[in-house]
Design a protein around this nucleic acid. Structure first.
Lengths: 272, 272
DNA sequence: CTCGTCGTCGTACGGCGTACGACGACGAGT
DNA sequence: ACTCGTCGTCGTACGCCGTACGACGACGAG
């Protein structure tokens, strides 16, 4: 592009009075800035629109300049991913483990809703500080259930897996809406849980799929899922396996649980 | 390419004695054949290696010929996906619902293990006959638990979501192994469940992540997950919510359950 | 005044998906 | 026998993509 988008990013006059402030001393094109710019592109035009050329023009530099700050595009994706993981973080972790796990799950789902492109990056297990903080938040919660570190990890994974799996499916249906009727404008962002085919009717008749046909003729396929119920079942099972777990709001939809500070708290008394 | 790979696929002599057999009458390059060829490529060299040019040469035609049988590459991916979904199908569905759901889950995980590239396609909810058959198998099982169609669907999704989420995570770690030590050669294909960063040690020290650090110093992160346990918790929760569900092998690790035919069986007596 | 380093960037290469139009083979109509 | 439409095939070309390579100006240190 001819003119840089942001005057503060203008090529000629870059690091002049930079060392006045200590924080401004680092190169004006730090990786986080690139990741954020790339995320902005992906949010608007989808992940496929994130190309090195386009990112370069939007931050106002030549294409190859990016490669001074980032090894390759894969590293850029990793940076985007960890920036995305930052939005999974809760300001405060509720004190009741059920409430807390539900809150983390909800927060995760909201992040995906804000950044649907994350769907296509989820396969790559990027390692980054925000992901580690996210895990730490999970750990503060699951440590309320048991002191067994292995068991903590298993619980963590089971909850996280359910959240990601469910969000993935629901978001996928949104991203590729069925030919007839767009579920996105039905109010509930998680509506339309199972995808009918274009020629669903014929196939279901030709193929001897009685139960699916039955489901199709009923309206079930068009009703929204209730993720909280699935999570509830899982938490029920976990709770039943750990009757010793502290349960603040013992009732069904009980207390909200008072919030505790995020990363404080003592390490469990015993290692494995 | 100079010479076609397969002589039976040679360009010049195509549809000559074709109409001798009725089944051979369809164009020698049917979509399923293309999907299978593409899957073979992806299995060996990864999804990124599946290009229209390469697929064309491997099936022995010019690149643009593919576009006569397939609208675009997206449609090819959809075909690959449904072919992949075909491997999720069970020959027989066990008669006990817990056993059956576990069997479907296991089968799904094995499919992903055989075709790791599916990781990168999972976001796209392709509609295809095999996917419908897979859902039908799920439905035959969840209809043992309740007659409420909505509830059946919710149970189906919760199990499926957990399976996909867990498999995704485990497979992702395998696909992008950590810099130190490859988990793939540890025997258990699902080992190494959480990914340490290259500079895990410094980060965990600098960042005030006590529980994660604790987990790191213990060996937990290097032990394999036990997916069955997560699924067990979920099924416990579902079972508790549906005490009326028929439970053949009532004991803990009870009966294996006799197999019933796949798609037969009556439709549940009442619609929603 | 020189030199090394930092940050920037133009050019070029190979690969991708695919739009477009041409071309041979062949079955049906006349 | 000749024409014509269709089916299946494919060569060429266009505009993207990621990125290897090397040049180039600015600037602090010697």
């Amino acid at each position: 592009m001819a003119a840089p988008a942001d005057p503060a990013v203008e090529p000629g006059r870059s690091g002049h009075a930079a060392l006045a402030t200590a924080a401004a001393s680092r190169p004006r094109l730090h990786p986080e800035l690139l990741a954020r710019a790339a995320i902005d592109i992906a949010d608007v035009d989808g992940l496929a629109a994130v190309s090195m050329r386009r990112l370069a023009t939007t931050v106002g530099v030549g294409t190859m300049t990016l490669y001074y700050h980032v090894r390759d595009k894969d590293e850029l994706l990793d940076l985007m991913w960890d920036e995305f993981m930052g939005e999974h973080l809760l300001a405060e972790v509720p004190a009741d483990w059920r409430t807390a796990l539900t809150a983390i799950a909800q927060r995760t789902r909201e992040s995906y809703q804000r950044h649907p492109w994350a769907l296509h990056v989820v396969a790559r297990p990027a390692r980054g500080p925000n992901k580690m903080r996210h895990i730490e938040q999970y750990l503060t919660v699951v440590s309320m259930i048991t002191d067994d570190l292995d068991e903590q990890l298993r619980i963590l994974h089971s909850v996280s897996d359910l959240v990601v799996g469910c969000t993935l499916r629901e978001l996928g249906v949104r991203a590729f809406p069925p030919p007839t009727g767009n579920p996105a404008d039905s109010g509930d962002p998680w509506a339309e849980v199972l995808q009918p085919m274009p020629d669903f009717g014929e196939l279901v008749r030709a193929e001897d799929l009685p139960r699916l046909r039955n489901l199709w003729t009923s309206g079930c396929l068009r009703r929204p899922t209730r993720f909280e119920q699935a999570l509830g079942w899982l938490l029920d099972g976990i709770g039943a396996a750990h009757p010793e777990a502290v349960q603040l709001g013992a009732g069904k939809g009980g207390g909200e649980g008072r919030a505790v500070a995020t990363t404080t708290g003592t390490v469990p008394k015993k290692g494995a």
